[in-house]
Design a protein around this nucleic acid. Structure first.
Lengths: 210, 210
DNA sequence: ATAACTTTGTTAATTATTTCACAAAATATA
DNA sequence: TATATTTTGTGAAATAATTAACAAAGTTAT
């Protein structure tokens, strides 16, 4: 539960806002000017009330009798999520997954970008992947401080994940996106998000199994 | 909310069960025989009550005054999640991410395995990645039926994700793990789990931004 | 200009999830 | 053996999140 001056909203609201943003951006590309919460509902499997309520925590963005203007909602959602400024992201671990993540970035108007990569393997250090320089992990703290980076993606093998996390925390990183299958130990002011493919597959299997 | 004969539990419970399993397996490797819910709580950032209640929906697995035997809890968790049998998984899209996923599998005692990969690019078809044959997507339905595969990972580019999903559904796939940044349209009996790195990064940014 | 329709924003009601509190069971100690 | 201590399992209470209901605002049709 997250509280502002007047209202309290669920952490799930934030997750959905990012989905709304993504899909409104696509709607603009498809030439859609205006959509109603009902149409969004069908598109995103979210109830229309949910959609309206999620937005209502941050202001009034629709027009009664009409719906939501895609252009202006994208602008507002970016502002809500903090995406009206550029965010640099660091990545540690340029193995296959790390490499895939570095390459997944196109050069469009993204305001969230991996701009520094780190590895401990001499074979990778000082190479470039998709235009991003791979630094020696030895220099992590220095570069993070220099570039004022606050977010770090961890894509190292399981047994290095906690050590990298400790280094990240010590270097001033405030948010971690973790791909290693382990619950990281961090101070409580650090935000962590885990992406674990096997946990997700197991979750799906649970539902198949009934 | 998921209901059995007597109790109803949250979908989050299932997600946590997979995390418990993962971590109890590690505890065994580290030579730990018995742990209490209090110890687990510190390890996994889950309240001890939460942990006990999550398990209580499925039976009594601890010993009062003592705690939980790691070996037997792993056995029980696997049974609960349906992992006491082997599950084959298909993967569509052997790009960088797909390749990383195929290579992430070691040859240990995993009972969830990607056993068939598919692509539409002639350059990839009939190659082998980490021992897994890459089939022409043309043969998807045939092979899925043949191997009786029920789960599919989608790691194709955004603009192909819905077409692949439609093919998967038509082929009898019942659960999809989707890496494409799009909400897939599926019949309501199909389970979908989305892994979207940019949504996750945006969620983290929201919290940094306050 | 008026009436009929649409769609938002929001309070209240409902439903879902977590936490609390404590009895029951097991162990350790004296 | 009796008492103190630990820890589980669970119904009840508290908290959180979603859904329902509807007034308010805008649009369309006549």
């Amino acid at each position: 539960m997250i509280c502002t001056d007047k209202n309290c909203f669920s952490p799930e609201t934030v997750r959905r806002l990012a989905v709304y943003l993504q899909n409104f951006e696509r709607l603009i590309k498809n030439g859609v000017d205006v959509v109603s919460s009902g149409q969004i509902s069908k598109l995103l499997n979210v109830s229309p009330e949910q959609f309206r309520k999620d937005l209502s925590y941050f202001g009034e963005f629709g027009k009664r009798g009409v719906g939501y203007q895609t252009e202006s909602l994208v602008y507002e959602l970016k502002k809500i999520l903090g995406l009206n400024q550029a965010w640099q992201v660091a990545l540690v671990g340029v193995g296959r997954l790390g490499c895939a993540l570095l390459n997944s970035q196109d050069f469009s108007e993204l305001n969230v970008r991996i701009t520094a990569a780190f590895d401990s393997d001499k074979k990778n250090i000082d190479k470039t992947v998709n235009g991003i320089h791979i630094h020696d992990i030895i220099n992590f703290k220095k570069i993070i401080k220099q570039k004022k980076i606050r977010i770090c993606v961890i894509s190292v093998p399981l047994d290095h994940a906690q050590a990298v996390t400790d280094l990240a925390v010590e270097s001033g990183i405030e948010a971690i996106l973790n791909f290693a299958p382990v619950i990281l130990n961090v101070p409580e002011n650090i935000h962590v998000s885990n992406m674990d493919i096997y946990c997700e597959l197991e979750r799906l299997i649970f539902f198949l199994n009934k």
